[in-house]
């Protein structure tokens, strides 16, 4: 039996919306610790993982882990007409015919309740075991406001043809983004900033050694979940998938894993 409730549908709607236009299907796995969503596209160089811990829910009942393959794009379309302040309940039973029900209830009078039933689908390739590599495994870790990172991704797309590449280079005090497309190149330099009075604002760089990695621009854009979080942490290594992490609340986060392209 799985029964989860959020008294505000906003967070769940935003997550499904942010991911629904990038990944058509996703694997939901519920356990005692929380609800984990994994999605990957057929490029096989990116994977996204969202973890909403049980504490993030107002009611979390999961007596047996449930693994559900769902149509994320279909959910995003269905939920776009619900209200952010609706109460959302997610319910599934093992014995039911592989279906999960999302209930949206208007909070004040509860006079309107919408039941969305989604059938489970088989999704290849996910879920995957994602080891948590310690920070020491990465050559450089950059933390910056997502309000700063999102416009950078947009600018990098200004040359946005399909095969535009982005090179992210980290030095002691700066992180540079270079995008090279058919029509030209764009280089954006970001210096490290220290604004002690605004703890959420700074661009911080922890560099163990210089690193410069190339990514497909189209996957960089997928890390636009920044609307869900005020800070992005970018962990870079020439030996591991890069991680773009957005903490949504203390208990929840979204991580985009991206493999650098071979030079």
């Amino acid at each position: 039996m799985l029964e989860l409730r959020l008294v505000q549908a906003t967070l769940f709607k935003n997550v499904v919306e942010a991911l629904g236009d990038l990944f058509s299907t996703a694997h939901f796995n519920s356990s005692r610790t929380g609800l984990e969503l994994q999605a990957k596209d057929n490029s096989r160089v990116t994977l996204i993982m969202l973890l909403l811990r049980a504490e993030a829910f107002d009611h979390y009942l999961c007596d047996r882990g449930l693994s559900m393959g769902l149509n994320l794009a279909g959910m995003a379309k269905a939920f776009c007409c619900t209200n952010n302040d609706d109460i959302i309940t997610i319910k599934a039973e093992e014995d039911w015919s592989d279906t999960v029900t999302f209930t949206f209830e208007s909070p004040e009078d509860g006079d309107e309740i919408s039941y969305f039933h989604f059938d489970f689908m088989v999704i290849n390739g996910v879920p995957l075991e994602i080891p948590e590599y310690p920070e020491s495994e990465y050559q450089a870790i950059v933390r910056m406001p997502s309000a700063k990172f999102m416009p950078i991704c947009n600018k990098l797309s200004s040359f946005g043809d399909r095969d535009t590449v982005v090179i992210i280079s980290v030095d002691k005090e700066s992180v540079d983004f270079l995008s090279r497309g058919k029509t030209g190149t764009l280089t954006i330099f970001c210096r490290e900033t220290q604004t002690v009075d605004k703890p959420k604002e700074p661009t911080l760089i922890e560099m163990k050694e210089k690193v410069s990695l190339m990514f497909d621009l189209r996957y960089m854009n997928s890390s636009k979940a920044s609307t869900l979080s005020d800070q992005v942490t970018i962990s870079l290594s020439s030996k591991l998938p890069a991680v773009f992490e957005y903490k949504i609340t203390e208990m929840s986060c979204i991580r985009y894993y991206m493999l650098p392209r071979n030079e």
């Binding site: 096989r44 995957l128 075991e129 894993y257 493999l259």
Partner: peptide, 14 residues
């Protein structure tokens, strides 16, 4: 060039 590795080289099927 080197064959592009895939994300599943780093993360195993659970």
């Amino acid at each position: 060039g080197r064959k592009q590795s895939t994300i599943t080289n780093y993360f195993v099927r659970s």
